[in-house]
Amino acid sequence: MDRQVISSLAHRDHPIAAPLHDTSVDRLLVRALPRGDERMLDLGCGEAAWLVRALRARPQARGEGVDVSPTALARAHETAGAAGLDGRLTLHEQDAARFTSPHAFDLVSVVGSTHAFGGLMPALAAAGELLAEGGRVLIGEGFWEREPSPAALAGLDASPGDFDDLATTVDRVTAAGWTPVHAHVSTPGEWDDYEWAWTGSLSAWALDHPGHPDSAHALEAAAEHREGWLRGYRGTLGFVTLLLRPSPPPRQK
């Protein structure tokens, strides 16, 4: 079963593809889009849930999203059309790491998709290249809440060096010339809701379509994911969403 199809099915009941509740998303967007007429770019936008949420509440704002998944973008077009946002939302089917634009953006977001760039710091560098003067970057990344066990690493198909602890993550960001102006650390409840929604939505689809050739595979994928989470990385992998502005140049001595 195609991984993009699995992801689309798994996120039907939790369209924000990250462990954040709706209230957390809304609070971050209020901080990230203070004027309400900004131009926003989402790199690795998936089904464009962040963009749709932002534009629906801000009639003067405009947005662009970039993703490689035609399945996710088809859903994004459908959702945007139903919300009446077609004239203010542009979607690009391409590799986010290769995206260029003739204009800059007031907000560039990369939430849960830094892997498309090879990690946090390359994603942050790419976002900065597309940022307008005075703009902000919204970036979401995992971090180790505690030393990962072999079971946690297996559940995530990860290595210890894939993430840092929270303090080190922030240190790396600030050393690269960025200042956090707001942040949200996902709570255990947000993580649990996200994971139950992911595995539950995929399982429900399989049970509702018993005759589909992918039904058995979907159930297996949901069970494998649930096992890796519950017996592996639950309580070990954290998630932080940072709102950043470029730091001023160092003062001359």
Results as ranks from 00 to 15, higher is better:
residue 176 A to L: 12
residue 50 W to M: 05
residue 69 S to Q: 11
residue 31 R to E: 06
residue 131 L to R: 04
residue 192 D to M: 07
residue 223 A to F: 06
residue 15 P to T: 06
residue 30 V to Q: 11
residue 107 L to Y: 09
residue 17 A to I: 11
residue 86 D to R: 14
residue 109 S to T: 03
residue 37 D to G: 09
residue 146 R to Q: 13
residue 84 G to S: 00
residue 53 R to A: 12
residue 183 A to I: 05
residue 74 A to H: 12
residue 219 L to W: 06
residue 112 G to P: 08
residue 172 R to Y: 09
residue 83 A to V: 01
residue 82 A to Y: 06
residue 77 H to P: 08
residue 105 F to C: 03
residue 117 F to E: 09
residue 37 D to F: 04
residue 83 A to K: 03
residue 71 T to F: 07
residue 129 E to N: 11
residue 59 P to T: 10
residue 74 A to N: 04
residue 211 G to D: 07
residue 243 L to Q: 04
residue 252 Q to K: 15
residue 163 F to K: 00
residue 249 P to E: 14
residue 41 L to R: 04
residue 11 H to C: 08
residue 58 R to F: 09
residue 169 T to H: 02
residue 39 R to Y: 10
residue 143 F to C: 04
residue 39 R to M: 02
residue 236 T to F: 13
residue 61 A to Y: 13
residue 93 E to C: 14
residue 48 A to D: 03
residue 221 A to V: 15
residue 180 P to I: 03
residue 194 Y to H: 12
residue 248 P to A: 03
residue 58 R to G: 01
residue 187 T to E: 13
residue 229 W to D: 03
residue 245 R to Q: 15
residue 113 S to C: 03
residue 11 H to E: 04
residue 205 W to Q: 01
residue 14 H to R: 10
residue 228 G to T: 13
residue 113 S to L: 00
residue 128 G to R: 02
residue 72 A to D: 02
residue 228 G to P: 06
residue 42 D to Y: 09
residue 92 H to E: 00
residue 208 D to T: 14
residue 121 M to C: 07
residue 68 V to S: 13
residue 169 T to R: 01
residue 176 A to I: 05
residue 20 L to V: 05
residue 98 R to T: 15
residue 246 P to I: 00
residue 135 G to R: 06
residue 157 D to S: 11
residue 167 A to F: 14
residue 168 T to W: 05
residue 160 P to G: 13
residue 5 V to T: 12
residue 96 A to M: 06
residue 119 G to W: 10
residue 220 E to I: 08
residue 143 F to P: 01
residue 17 A to R: 12
residue 242 L to Q: 02
residue 85 L to P: 04
residue 63 G to N: 02
residue 210 P to S: 08
residue 228 G to Y: 07
residue 210 P to A: 05
residue 150 P to H: 01
residue 135 G to L: 05
residue 205 W to V: 12
residue 77 H to I: 03
residue 62 R to C: 14
residue 68 V to A: 14
residue 96 A to F: 01
residue 127 A to I: 12
residue 232 G to M: 08
residue 100 T to A: 15
residue 228 G to C: 13
residue 245 R to K: 07
residue 248 P to G: 07
residue 180 P to F: 04
residue 80 A to K: 13
residue 57 A to F: 01
residue 189 G to F: 06
residue 225 H to S: 14
residue 170 V to C: 10
residue 57 A to H: 13
residue 88 R to G: 00
